[in-house]
Amino acid sequence: MPGSRSNRALRFWQAVLFLAFLAFWHVATSPTLLPAFYFDNPHKAAFFFGEPLKVLARTWDWFSSGTIYPHLWVTLLETMLAFVIGTALGLAVGLWLALSPTSSALLDPYIKALNSMPRVILAPIFGVWFGLDIASKVALGVTLVFFIVFFNVYQGVREVSYTVLANARILGASERQLLRHVYVPSAMSWVFASLHNSVGLAFVGAVVGEYLGSSRGVGYLILQAEGTFDINSVFAGILVLTAFALLLDWAVSFAERRLLVWQPRGGETEKM
């Protein structure tokens, strides 16, 4: 198939680009390969930018010795909890406000204010309220996830087709059945459209929370490494975070494909 062939070529060039980047990083920071052209000391480039081979070695070390697993587990647990709680709250409040115009009109300015507030700044307060354990990180993630889901659900309910709604009513749906069979499915498609965003932000909430004060987690590892000017470990931490962010994103895409089969996709042909 020509499609998969050009796809394979694309993957190949993407890998080449990545290796070229690593090679450039390695050559530019190695104390021995090139004379120092910017810094007065050949070791300074490695001090500021780390060395890719050492970063990879450190990452390998973490995984082979197993020291990373408890930290990674904590960060992923915080992400998952923030994502689940934030989505559930956003769904509930979004449905409630969308179906109750009075409450929606009453709360409108406060929701706008809360949404435009830079919520990362709440992290220290959550630290005080919920302690330095996972609860404060989950709380931060929830505030980030909640608004994305909330606005999408609100919009989703507002955009339910009048005809579909009227048709369900005429077919005999009660108000509760309308909620379950029309409003929620319609809102869910908007929630799924925002899943990538909300999972990403749950992750951000967890890592930023850890970075600002914690005793476990990948953010904590990075903070520790930074405290001892161990740039290679900082980059190793960033590498691990990026890899897991990609993994989460992929998991979301997978869930999306499974759960939104009813939505038309571009260029879909008949399946015989």
Binding site: S161, V164, A168
Partner: peptide, 14 residues
């Protein structure tokens, strides 16, 4: 009464 609409009235998620 049953009602047949002019526009799309099926639930797309079913």
């Amino acid at each position: 009464a049953g009602y047949l609409f002019q526009t799309e009235a099926l639930m797309p998620w079913r």
